[in-house]
Amino acid sequence: MSRLSYAECSARERLAALLDAGSFHEWLPPAQRVASPHLAALGVPSAFDDGVAIGRARLGGRPVFVAAQEGAFMGGGVGEVHGAKLVGLLRRAQAAQTAQGSSQGECPEAVLLLLESGGVRLHEANAGLIAVSEVMRALLDLRAAGLPVVVLIGGGAGCFGGMGIVASCADRVVMSDVGRHAMSGPEVIEASHGVEEFDSRDRARVWRTTGGRHRYLCGDCDLLVEDDVAAFRAAALLAIGQGPRPLTLAALQAQQAVLEARSRLAQGADDATALWRRLGVTEAEAVPDLALERLRALRPLHLADDTGA
């Protein structure tokens, strides 16, 4: 079967190809025209879905709730409506989870977030900032209720800013080789501290700093896949099967220790290659060129799944 590039798909193409055929039922579809009035006020073209599609679907027969951000519309930026759609989806999952066992019909086994975003949409920045924190709160409510949230990152716009933080709040993160996950984009850092600090045109370095391989080796990404929709589908199924990762005090203390250790190890390391070496990755220099299968075997065991799931 020929490969379908996840990065080159639109949000809706991803939903169509990743989920069980014909299973996606959208809430607030474009026909309902729930768009951003703020963009209209600025004279900027708006979208009838405000850049995100949400709904319920099936994946491998399992019921899931799902959202997909469209990176081609305003860079996947979160505005008031866009953010509220994400919050609504998460709260609806929360309500279904809470009502579980009662007569109510729809109870998802997981929430899938296909994230592609530069973060807060600057045209409506204040509302976007608050919205992102509402998404975080709603997501953590879901985790506390024991419903797993799985994030997929592999779109061309990457996953940055507030949505980069949201992604790191999920139970599990799946990334592709070409996916990027970070906070501030290299262009922003270059504009702020100069080209010596971060040359945004140095693609190899950008990928070593923010790309899927780096995040996987550090343990920030749980599953690393090829840029292939079928591979994302398989990984999403696997991640859902692994179940929730409760955010207990012990789990957060362990996470604190892992992150503090990383910071100590990275002292004086100018490049991710040095950090990989210090983390115990053999063949660190070859990381960008290795086949993924080979790379997966290189991740230090203690940075892999800590729950034994």
């Binding site: 975080m136 933080i165 790191s168 971060f198 992150l259």
Partner: peptide, 25 residues
């Protein structure tokens, strides 16, 4: 947020998410 390549390499988004998770806990 700190706008430095070193912080991005370390995964500043993960550290911030961790802070948010601790407050949530």
């Amino acid at each position: 947020q700190q706008l430095r390549r070193h912080d991005e390499m370390l995964g500043i988004h993960r550290a911030m998410a961790h802070l948010g998770q601790c407050i949530d806990l």
